[in-house]
Computed example of a mutant assay.
Amino acid sequence: MSAAVQPKQQQLPEVPVTGKRQSPIDIRTENVVNERTKRSVLQDGSKPLYIDYSPLTGVQLTIQNTGHGWQLSIPDEHAKNCEITGGTLGSDHYRLLQIHAHWGRDSNTGSEHTVNGRTYPCELHLVHWNATKYSNPKQAQTQSKDGLAVVGVFVEIGCEQHPIFAIIDSLIPAIPYKGDKKSVQNEHLDLNQLVPDRHSPNYWFYLGSLTTPPYNESVLWHLMKTPIRASEKQIAEFRKLYEKESYSDANHNVKENYRDVQDLHGRPILDID
Rank of each mutant, 00 (worst) to 15 (best):
V32N: 01
L148K: 11
Y203G: 00
Q185E: 11
R105M: 07
C122E: 03
T142I: 13
I51C: 06
C122A: 12
R198A: 06
Q22E: 12
L191H: 06
D249L: 02
K133N: 15
K47D: 05
A101Y: 11
I269M: 05
H68N: 12
G152E: 12
W221I: 06
Q64I: 08
Y247E: 01
A250C: 09
N202E: 00
S111D: 02
C159H: 15
D180Q: 02
R105S: 10
A250Y: 14
S91Y: 14
V151D: 07
G208H: 00
R229S: 07
A174P: 02
Y50T: 05
I269Y: 04
N31W: 15
P121T: 04
W103D: 03
T37C: 09
H162K: 02
P213D: 01
G266D: 12
E187C: 11
P16Q: 13
N202H: 00
N257F: 07
W129M: 06
Q143S: 15
Y206G: 01
L42A: 10
L96T: 00
H102G: 03
K182R: 12
E243M: 04
V153K: 00
I84M: 06
S231I: 13
G208K: 00
E217K: 03
G179L: 03
Q9G: 09
V5N: 09
V32A: 00
G90W: 08
G58Q: 11
T29G: 00
Q185H: 07
Y242H: 10
L72D: 08
V254G: 06
G158D: 01
P16K: 13
I269Q: 01
L210F: 13
D146P: 08
Q139C: 11
L220G: 08
G58K: 06
K225I: 01
K178N: 04
R21D: 12
T142K: 15
E232V: 10
S2T: 04
S200L: 04
V59P: 01
V41M: 07
N186H: 15
V115R: 00
R28A: 14
P176G: 04
L72Y: 12
L89M: 09
I27Y: 03
K47C: 03
M224K: 00
Q10P: 03
A4C: 05
S170R: 14
N202Q: 02
I51A: 08
Y134D: 09
I175Q: 04
T114A: 01
S170C: 10
D260H: 15
T226D: 04
P137Y: 14
T66N: 04
D180V: 01
K178D: 05
H252Q: 11
L61F: 11
T109I: 10
P213S: 08
P213M: 07
T18V: 11
L220R: 13
W70D: 06
I172C: 08
L56F: 07
W70Q: 11
A79V: 02
D44R: 10
I25Y: 12
L264R: 13
N186T: 14
Y53N: 06
Y50K: 06
V15D: 07
G45T: 09
K38F: 14
N136D: 15
G69Y: 14
H125R: 14
R239L: 05
L56R: 09
V127A: 03
L72W: 14
N253D: 07
N34E: 11
V127K: 03
E256D: 11
Y242L: 02
Q60A: 12
S200K: 05
L42I: 04
V153W: 00
